[in-house]
Write a protein that binds this DNA or RNA. Structure first.
Lengths: 195, 195
DNA sequence: TCAGGGTCTGACCGATCGGTCAGGCATGCT
DNA sequence: AGCATGCCTGACCGATCGGTCAGACCCTGA
């Protein structure tokens, strides 16, 4: 019977997650969160140092996965990088669609906050990998549109089960990504040519 | 020599456009806009009834084009609807990339404002057309990811010339959209099969 | 010269924001 | 009983928000 413990901390976190996905980070006030939980605004600030800390704790699991995906990508090039980036990001987006939806449009401002300073670089590397590390505008544009679109869209499909959304997004990503080996601007370096 | 006329109205509009694309609608205060123009906040509110009116005047040209695209789409089905929707929206996104970037993430809240009440329905129809009016989840997901991604991305390519961005996006859209006739859940209606 | 209208401004308003603080109220240990 | 600790709160703070208003300034036309 651990249930008697109120766990206000967790309730605040859950309420914040709900509200952030609907109204956005900026659009949600501490008052709103407190109202949904049924406590005072001061209580919210008792459990979390400030609003940013609340967001940081909310995003922590997703950020961990993003970081490990960044590690996997390290050293990969060409089509291999594209495939790992696509599959990894689609999986991340599906699993953490609520958390990602929080960032809806507020990415640039939120990334200025010290707790998220490194995410910009990680997502840049992710985009680069999805483009197959090509510098062709078409590849870069496709990668950016895909990442932005998936981030934006996954929050809107709350009714679609995880695996169905995952396969649909992955199919789309593989179709949309510009192939790097099939149309090489310069001949492949060493042994990229297989099949 | 019409140049002597200060045209504060236009300057405010231009400053607002710049700031909205960087900081977003909510994130930009009338004070910020006035500061960039070099006038007082009261002057901004002398030229525009309120902040929302400023946004509305800023978005008006883009909305006009969106509405005419909606008209073009009326009656079209299947692959034809997909092609017109893709080409039309890509063109709109490229030409009005700054205006569209303004909406970055603030879409849901902004659409609640009376001046933009009908846009939601238009963009829903646009998404539906891009999905070839198919109700298959894959088609709907692809359409949503494409629209959201292009909206989000086009603001980030200020350095790419219009026509290059347009061709890249259109190529991407055609590749990413789920074909409605090639993989029919039910046989094609009349004579869609050519080539 | 004066009146009137367009343009602009400083001062101000109420509301709301994130955040602080002293203190109330249980509970449990000594 | 006395005390400490954890949890929570109302009251309050300065800052900033969108918006209002009376009046100053300038130009023009009578």
């Amino acid at each position: 019977m651990v249930r008697a413990v109120p766990d206000t901390h967790g309730e605040i976190l859950a309420a914040a997650a709900r509200q952030f996905t609907v109204t956005g980070y900026r659009g949600t006030s501490l008052q709103d969160i407190a109202r949904e939980v049924g406590c005072s605004k001061a209580t919210v600030l008792y459990h979390f140092a400030n609003k940013e800390a609340l967001l940081a704790e909310l995003m922590a699991p997703a950020i961990d996965v993003l970081r490990s995906l960044d590690d996997q990508l390290n050293g990969l090039t060409g089509a291999a990088a594209q495939e790992v980036a696509a599959a990894g990001f689609v999986d991340l987006a599906v699993r953490f669609r609520r958390e990602i939806a929080v960032l809806r449009g507020e990415f640039p401002e939120l990334l200025c906050q010290p707790a998220f300073a490194h995410i910009q670089q990680i997502s840049d590397r992710l985009r680069d990998a999805l483009a197959g590390h090509s510098d062709r505008p078409g590849a870069r544009i496709a990668a950016l549109v895909l990442l932005a679109g998936i981030s934006e869209a996954c929050g809107e499909f709350a009714d679609i089960p995880d695996d169905e959304l995952r396969t649909a997004l992955l199919t789309l990503a593989r179709r949309a990504v510009e192939p790097v080996d099939a149309t090489p601007p310069h001949p492949p370096t060493t042994e990229d040519k297989d099949s």
